[in-house]
Computed example of a mutant assay.
Amino acid sequence: MELSFSGEVWHWRGPSPFHFVTVPGPEAAEIEAVKNLVTYGWGVIPAQVRIGGTRFTTSLFPKDGGFVVPVKDAVRRAEGIELGDTVAVRLTIEGPR
């Protein structure tokens, strides 16, 4: 499954602070429909992500009935992304092999 969307970068200040982009409703619904086939535990879903020219592997996290994409600091530095920026995200989610 390949999905493309744009979203605002936000910061979570919890015990492990991190930056995220929320997957919009329609795309989150598509992920929800296949999540049981692709999750590897407690709802996280492995994904390949591209933001700008940077590609990376991460896991989508369930949040508030949808999903969020973690944006690594190295990706933010490489792409010049700041808190509050809107970024274009391309996700690739593969089913079990």
Rank of each mutant, 00 (worst) to 15 (best):
66 G>W: 00
29 A>F: 13
55 R>T: 10
97 R>Y: 10
90 R>P: 02
80 G>L: 03
13 R>Q: 15
37 L>S: 15
69 V>P: 01
95 G>T: 11
97 R>W: 10
87 V>Q: 04
34 V>R: 08
43 G>E: 05
11 H>C: 11
30 E>H: 10
43 G>M: 08
45 I>R: 00
77 R>P: 07
45 I>C: 06
64 D>L: 10
49 V>R: 04
18 F>P: 09
30 E>A: 11
12 W>G: 12
39 T>Y: 03
52 G>R: 03
16 S>W: 14
49 V>Q: 01
48 Q>A: 14
69 V>R: 10
84 G>R: 06
94 E>M: 09
20 F>Y: 12
36 N>D: 14
70 P>G: 05
14 G>S: 13
31 I>S: 02
65 G>V: 09
32 E>F: 14
55 R>F: 07
77 R>A: 09
6 S>H: 01
55 R>D: 14
9 V>F: 00
39 T>K: 14
68 V>F: 05
87 V>G: 01
89 V>F: 00
51 I>C: 02
13 R>A: 15
37 L>I: 14
77 R>N: 11
56 F>M: 07
9 V>T: 09
81 I>E: 10
67 F>M: 10
12 W>C: 09
58 T>C: 05
67 F>L: 03
58 T>K: 00
18 F>R: 11
16 S>G: 07
88 A>L: 03
50 R>S: 11
49 V>T: 02
61 F>K: 13
32 E>D: 12
48 Q>W: 10
67 F>D: 00
20 F>P: 00
62 P>M: 06
34 V>L: 11
92 T>G: 08
2 E>R: 09
75 V>H: 01
45 I>D: 01
85 D>G: 05
47 A>M: 11
34 V>A: 07
25 G>K: 08
15 P>Y: 13
82 E>M: 13
46 P>E: 01
67 F>C: 07
94 E>W: 12
67 F>V: 04
7 G>S: 10
5 F>L: 02
60 L>W: 00
80 G>V: 08
9 V>I: 07
2 E>G: 03
90 R>F: 05
19 H>N: 11
38 V>Y: 07
95 G>I: 15
35 K>C: 11
12 W>Q: 09
56 F>R: 00
63 K>W: 13
39 T>Q: 14
62 P>C: 06
78 A>C: 11
13 R>H: 12
78 A>M: 05
15 P>W: 15
66 G>N: 09
54 T>F: 02
39 T>I: 12
47 A>Y: 03
42 W>Q: 15
52 G>D: 02
86 T>V: 12
3 L>Q: 06
20 F>K: 07
91 L>E: 01
28 A>P: 03
9 V>C: 08
37 L>C: 13
10 W>Q: 12
80 G>H: 06
46 P>F: 07
5 F>G: 09
49 V>D: 04
60 L>S: 00
87 V>Y: 03
93 I>W: 03
68 V>T: 09
70 P>M: 06
11 H>Q: 12
91 L>C: 06
34 V>P: 05
61 F>T: 13
52 G>F: 01
64 D>H: 08
2 E>K: 09
96 P>I: 15
87 V>K: 03
73 D>C: 05
59 S>W: 06
97 R>M: 01
33 A>V: 06
47 A>Q: 05
30 E>K: 12
5 F>R: 01
95 G>A: 14
21 V>C: 00
78 A>N: 03
27 E>H: 02
36 N>L: 14
84 G>T: 08
69 V>T: 10
32 E>Y: 15
34 V>E: 08
52 G>Q: 08
30 E>L: 04
